[in-house]
Amino acid sequence: MISLEQHTDHYFYLYANCFVTRGFSRSTIIDVAHKNLYFIDNAYCDLISRFRVDKIGAVINSFEAQKDVTYFLEFLNFLQANNLGTFVQDITLFPAISLDWDHPSKVTNAIIDSRNINHDFEDILKQLDDLGCLDVQLRFYEKTEISYLESILELTAPTAITAVQMIIRYNALIDSMDYHRLVKKYPVLDLIIVYGSPENKFLEQHDDVREVFKKVLFTTQAVDSCASCGTINLRSMSIPDSVQGYAENVRHNSCLNRKVSVDENGDIKNCPSLPRSFGNVKDTPIARVLEDKDFIKAWNISKESITVCKDCEFRNICSDCRAYTSIPGDILSKPAKCTYDPYLANFA
């Protein structure tokens, strides 16, 4: 237990990588360093903002009722017990963290959708690689052969792409060992999700590899087209691994920023589910699309500009969706598939 007398002349420093987000009904503290989330009452959110100005003694003196002092002490104990902050003599030595975001790559992630069409993957992956793209997700709406997936993975060999995810339709003819072999052969393959499967499960690993890689996931979920996308729930939120990741969420659109999509018709879009095409990948270079101001505009739709979301305590760790919005046609309205109500603080 902290003794307040000992610290009256100190400031309480909430570590700069613990970020407070005020919501309508409650606030969150996101501890990016330890990937933890804490809910706090909005009254404490106000209190935290005083920490940078007032010493502990001054904060205590401002309370009228003794019980407020007790609550305050409990709150400080909570912060310290969870290693969210510490007492310091000079708060000015501990500046806030910058939330400026930038990345050397022109494109960091991409989605390529396929249905009965053979995209020129060699060309598309080459273009993405030239733009510095790191993560690529391939979504197939028809059954695919393992050999076809393999031929695409081979194309990543000369690129600097660091992760490929494949979302494929369940095919009873494919032996589960084939997925296993694919994952082992191509370390760039980060994840295969097989939808429309008979059951939900991770593929069992058969030999005693050091780490069990949960890289192949079967799900019973039915997927017919990109229209299945846009799910927002607690599982689609994640605390970023780094301050940069958090800053990107705060400053930019957490889903669309530095993203390029090629839909099932080859149309280049921000997201396959958005209506506007910026040209077909057959005749339009992706690099040229990136010069279009309208294309870039979506990258900068931050949560602060979205109705309802701007009052949500999860906004800075939410991955957002600008394709399916609650008011059709209003790109600044809440995601249609989000079931959370920040005014009531519950999921429907």
């Binding site: 660091t162 994640s238 970023p240």
Partner: peptide, 19 residues
């Protein structure tokens, strides 16, 4: 270059709540 997991969710076509 090292292979690594994507730094963020690329799409939300799979509903992990149902798994």
């Amino acid at each position: 270059i090292e292979y690594q997991q994507p730094s963020k969710l690329i799409s939300k076509i799979i509903n992990f709540n149902e798994i």
